[in-house]
Computed example of a mutant assay.
Amino acid sequence: MRLARTLGLRYPLVQAPMAGTSTPALAAAVCEAGALGSIAVGAVDAGAARAMIADLRGRTARPFNVNAFVHRKADRDAALERAWIAAMRPLFERFGAQPPEDLREIYRSLNDDPDMLEVLIEAAPAVVSFHFGLPLPKTVAALKARGSLLVASATSLAEAEAGVAAGMDAIVAQGFEAGGHRGVFDPDAPDARLGTLDLVRQLTGRIGLPVIAAGAIMDGEEIRAALDAGADAVQMGTAFVGCPESAADEGYRALLAEAAGTTLTAAISGRPARCLDNAFVAWAREATATIPGYPMTYDAGKALIAAAKAAGELGWGAHWAGTAFARARPMPAGELVEVLAREAGFDA
């Protein structure tokens, strides 16, 4: 459990960053309970990121993780984007709204955002993690000079090896069961779709770095299974969605208890992501228009979600969740960490 020792954690547990759902309050509660809390800044600008980090620092003096997106710059196709807007227009009209006239690149990659990099260098969090790819060499050097440990998500051995070559200090092995966006570097390339434990076993001993298991880990027994498979720590996201400190809305929380399953879809954001089966997912299954790509598709998706919510419809959210969502236990985050630790036998 090298990561826990390095960071002075009581438990080898990481609360997943979960952009839009994690909050400074959630991360702080996890940190105070002895695990690694996380926030995500990929969906906000530099000013908001600075405020989030300050908020978190005001709640805990313990180490925490700040996650950034490092997706490749989008290839734009105006005709494709117009066709997607047209396909979604009836949905907007159902809620008495109009779709956006044009789609925007609403999220900037850290690799194209010097202001965000400045915030991270200034803040120097104990851990900085990356999703969708790898940071530029100058970013790695700057953050390491400030003492931050660097962690990248990988869905395959090739991606993990690229992380090693880029200077990462640990790798999150994101199994196919995991909720939220797949961390694939190239969403247009074939996805190996490896399960969490299979991926952990493939990476352990092959990359020489601590491996953090992520995907469908919900209780102490599964934490132990991941550690026995060779993981140095585990990362859990869906398990924390129902915590009162998360930003999940009423519809999201209700679906955790009621949804029939999950589906991997790119129709909400433009990148493949595992979502609870809801009205948006049902529409996406029947949609025939070509998805424009990330993050432009998310511009339309977020606008539709907002229109539906304003009309009182809560089933159109980006309700990201892993395949084991039905076993989520809504309780305060600190209490959940302690329950998981007892189940895993960490205090025995």
Rank of each mutant, 00 (worst) to 15 (best):
N111V: 10
A307L: 04
A49H: 03
E343W: 10
N278Q: 07
G179F: 10
V140P: 02
D228H: 13
F280Q: 01
T204E: 12
A266P: 06
T6E: 14
L134F: 07
P210A: 09
A254R: 15
V164F: 13
F92D: 02
G220W: 03
H71R: 11
L143V: 05
P90D: 06
K309T: 15
E343R: 08
H131E: 10
N278P: 08
I291Q: 00
E177K: 03
T288W: 09
F280R: 00
D115C: 08
V211K: 00
A333S: 05
D169L: 08
R57M: 07
K73R: 15
L314Q: 11
K302D: 14
D55E: 15
L56H: 01
T6H: 14
G220T: 09
N67C: 12
D169K: 03
D75R: 15
H181E: 06
R5E: 15
P330Y: 04
F132D: 00
A178Y: 05
G293P: 02
L3F: 09
M168G: 03
E161D: 11
D45Q: 10
Q174M: 13
K302S: 14
A189W: 10
F176H: 12
R2K: 14
N111D: 12
S22L: 07
T263Q: 13
A27K: 01
S153V: 15
A239N: 06
Q174E: 14
R2E: 15
I171C: 03
C275Q: 12
G317A: 07
P99V: 04
T262Y: 03
T60H: 09
A257Q: 14
L194E: 09
I212N: 03
G237E: 03
A46F: 08
P135T: 03
G47Q: 13
D188T: 15
P332T: 01
A145K: 14
V128A: 03
A259F: 11
G167R: 06
T21C: 13
A48M: 13
I217D: 01
M236P: 04
G220L: 09
Q235M: 15
D232I: 08
P244S: 06
L255G: 01
A213Q: 05
A289E: 09
F130P: 02
P210L: 04
K138L: 13
A259Y: 10
C275W: 09
P244A: 02
P190R: 03
G230Q: 08
P12C: 05
V44H: 06
A79T: 12
P12K: 00
E93Y: 12
G345I: 02
L143D: 00
P63F: 05
L340M: 10
A46P: 05
V70E: 02
A74N: 11
L304E: 02
P99L: 05
V211H: 04
R10G: 08
T262N: 08
L13W: 09
P272L: 11
W283L: 06
T196G: 02
A16R: 02
V281I: 15
A308I: 04
A79P: 10
L199V: 06
